[in-house]
Amino acid sequence: MQILLNGETRALESDATVAELVESLGLAGRRIAVEVNEEIVPKSEHGGTRLTEGDRVEVVHAIGGG
């Protein structure tokens, strides 16, 4: 299946969870936040949240700013 990840199309195994996506990006355990279709997915729910075709996923982190 395909999802839109940080604005770019990405192929993903069907039924992948948010936790599996984060793991595949090498971001497990990092200070990030995840939003799917404009709704926050709390860390505690990454393992239980399955992604579906066409989901719009945002993965963000803190950067320098004023």
């Binding site: 990840l5 990030i32 993965v59 963000v60 320098g64």
Partner: peptide, 20 residues
């Protein structure tokens, strides 16, 4: 201390330093 929130650069070196 204030900071900004931005899309994570995917495919970046996982060891890259983090502001936090």
């Amino acid at each position: 201390v204030t900071f900004a929130v931005r899309r994570t650069n995917l495919g970046q070196d996982a060891g890259e330093p983090n502001l936090l």
